[in-house]
């Protein structure tokens, strides 16, 4: 994904807070001289839960640690650190996958719950593509939320990308139909579709999304090439339910993790990658339009569990 600038420093600063927070707690538990006993396992488990990794994953890892200790491969507490980094790497390295935009037009469908950052992510992705000389079109298919269309248009003006829109309250399928038609006719590189936020428990709204996808498929076989669920980093275990249900309803091609610039660690993506085998395709780390990049598992692990 060379058209997206490497995140470099931005991600580091974005993740620094979570690193400081977790690092201190971990360092206290994984001191070399600390005896490995039940209280260590309990504290370790709590730290993992505090990172939003979820109780099942925390229990699995501590069980694995117990086994290693039993077999004598781990004898000191600090040896659990590389063990945990490997444990995370096994899950996250295969999950880091680039966007599939090798189509003309490549159609990207952005979806997720309310307030996760879909509109901003659409704009950031459009800007990144424009910077690498691609011709992009945005579609304002969130016709429900008040002023969602204006929000995307304001972004469009700012980054110089045209926005396909209709009146508020109109059928999102009609907007999408127009947009796919325009993108195909003009032979553009990419079409990015912003949809209305919806809670994954609202079955009628999930059906509406499935319909949007059908409309796109019918018009342009093979599309949408990416159906990305936007998830904000502070989300807890509910994020897993979101990913599962969006995936069941329309079939996701990956997840975008946004707002990693707060104190939140985004640990829920580990569970999503592990249990649903969904790739993590993009990471958003700030409010600026350039703050979107590919998911770098090593950096993510460094932030969660520093090497030492």
């Amino acid at each position: 994904m060379k058209f997206l600038a490497a995140l470099g420093e931005q991600l580091s600063t974005g993740l620094r807070r979570s690193r400081e927070y977790l690092a201190a707690e971990l360092a206290a538990v994984l001191r070399p001289e600390r005896p490995i006993d039940e209280s260590l396992y309990t504290e370790l488990e709590e730290i993992l839960v505090a990172a939003d990794l979820g109780a099942p994953l925390a229990a699995d890892f501590t069980n694995r640690a117990r086994e290693e200790v039993m077999f004598g491969t781990v004898t000191r507490a600090d040896q659990l650190r590389p063990l945990f980094r490997r444990f995370l790497g096994d899950i996250l390295v295969p999950a880091a996958q680039p966007l599939d935009l090798d189509h003309r037009p490549a159609v990207v469908l952005m979806l997720g719950v309310n307030g996760s950052g879909k509109t901003t992510t659409c704009a950031k992705l459009a800007a990144a593509l424009t910077r690498s000389e691609k011709q992009v079109l945005l579609a304002a298919a969130d016709t429900f939320r008040a002023a969602a269309i204006e929000q995307l248009e304001a972004w469009g003006d700012r980054i110089g990308v045209e926005v396909v829109r209709q009146e508020p309250g109109s059928d999102p399928a009609a907007v999408v139909f127009d947009a796919v038609k325009a993108a195909t006719a003009r032979n553009l590189d990419a079409l990015i579709i912003d949809t209305a936020g919806r809670l994954h428990t609202k079955s009628n709204l999930m059906m509406e999304l499935a319909k949007l996808k059908r409309v796109i498929e019918r018009q342009l076989p093979g599309a949408p090439h990416e159906s990305l669920m936007v998830l904000d980093a502070p989300t807890g275990q509910n994020g897993f339910a979101q990913a599962r249900m969006f995936n069941e309803a329309i079939g996701l091609s990956g997840v975008v993790l946004t707002k990693l610039d707060g104190t939140a660690k985004g640990g829920i993506v580990v569970r999503i990658a592990r249990e649903l085998r969904l790739p993590i395709k993009l990471v958003g780390v700030g409010e600026k339009v350039e703050d979107l990049g590919p998911f770098d598992p090593q950096r993510f692990i460094d932030a969660l569990v520093p090497a030492a």
Binding site: D52, P234, G236, Q237, G239, G262, T263, I268
Partner: peptide, 15 residues
């Protein structure tokens, strides 16, 4: 506060 927030909710509120 978004009810779907995870463990970070308390940090947010506290800050």
């Amino acid at each position: 506060v978004d009810a779907m927030t995870g463990q970070d909710a308390v940090n947010v509120a506290d800050r």
